[in-house]
């Protein structure tokens, strides 16, 4: 048992070194043990589409619009409706309300401080 008392920066770098070392060892172990298909093989395995042939889908990509469906249109639907359609709606005057209220807040603080 020995405790290494390092400053946070050196310690983090030390641990990153450990990360690199163990990654390297793991990679070497993996490379030596695993069986790989030869790179020259022209036979590709098709994507697994629930047992269907790969031709049932147009492309293997999912549109980025459909990522995070659960957050954007599920759990956080109200939040995102507000953020996207009401706040960041691109209309200059609607932003003005937020910006003006911020300057109002600052002026209010200044006045409160002045009145104290």
């Amino acid at each position: 048992m020995s405790t290494l008392n390092l400053d946070p920066w050196t310690a983090t770098l030390f641990l990153s070194g450990v990360l690199a070392l163990s990654t390297l060892v793991m990679y070497l172990v993996y490379i030596t043990l695993s069986r790989k298909t030869p790179q020259t093989s022209s036979e590709y395995s098709e994507p697994y589409i629930g047992g269907e042939p790969a031709s049932v889908i147009k492309s293997v990509d999912v549109s980025v619009r459909n990522l995070f469906w659960g957050v954007v249109r599920g759990a956080g639907r109200r939040l995102y409706t507000f953020l996207r359609d009401q706040m960041h709606n691109g209309i200059l005057n609607d932003w003005g309300v937020y910006m003006l209220s911020y300057i109002g807040l600052l002026t209010l603080i200044a006045l409160i401080y002045f009145m104290r």
């Binding site: 020995s2 405790t3 290494l4 390092l6 400053d7 030390f14 450990v18």
Partner: peptide
């Protein structure tokens, strides 16, 4: 492999390790 490396690195922060990093 990087993921496994990260787990190994985080093990050194725990007190079970013979070489312990603490700060």
């Amino acid at each position: 492999c990087v993921g496994i490396g990260a787990i190994t690195a985080s093990l050194l922060l725990l007190p079970i390790s013979p070489l312990r990093i603490a700060f």
